[in-house]
Simulated scan of single mutants.
Amino acid sequence: MPYYVYAIHTDHTNNRLYKVLDEVVAAEKLEREMSDHCFARDNYFVRSFFAKDSMEAEAKADALRPYPKLKPSS
């Protein structure tokens, strides 16, 4: 499964996909690099995770938000 690296926004701003990678080590490295560029005042945090496709990745990223924007599927 591919690994997705996202900027997860803590406000109304849409989440941002940084990159899709095939290796967990590369995804974790990018997550650390991007997290190092975050400041306390920024409205996002960076996370990497695996998902079977981009739709699942978007849903997982949204679920990490303090206030998810997507409606949960029934």
Rank of each mutant, 00 (worst) to 15 (best):
M1W: 02
P2Q: 02
P2S: 08
Y3G: 01
Y3K: 00
Y3T: 03
Y3D: 03
Y6R: 01
A7D: 07
H9N: 10
H9G: 01
T10L: 05
D11V: 01
H12T: 08
T13W: 07
T13Q: 10
N14R: 14
N14V: 08
N15A: 02
L17G: 01
V20R: 13
L21A: 00
L21S: 00
L21H: 04
L21E: 03
E23M: 14
E23Y: 08
A27N: 06
A27E: 04
K29H: 15
K29W: 05
K29I: 08
L30N: 05
E31P: 04
R32L: 14
R32H: 15
E33Q: 14
E33F: 11
M34V: 09
M34Q: 14
S35V: 00
S35A: 10
D36F: 10
C38R: 04
C38E: 12
D42A: 05
D42Q: 10
N43K: 09
N43L: 14
F45V: 07
R47P: 02
S48L: 05
F49C: 03
F50L: 10
F50D: 13
S54F: 15
A57I: 03
E58K: 15
E58A: 15
E58I: 15
A59Y: 07
A59H: 09
K60R: 12
A61D: 06
A61Q: 05
D62I: 00
A63W: 00
L64V: 04
R65W: 01
P66I: 04
P66E: 05
P66M: 05
K69D: 13
K69R: 12
K71R: 15
K71N: 13
K71W: 09
P72W: 00
P72L: 06
P72N: 04
S73P: 00
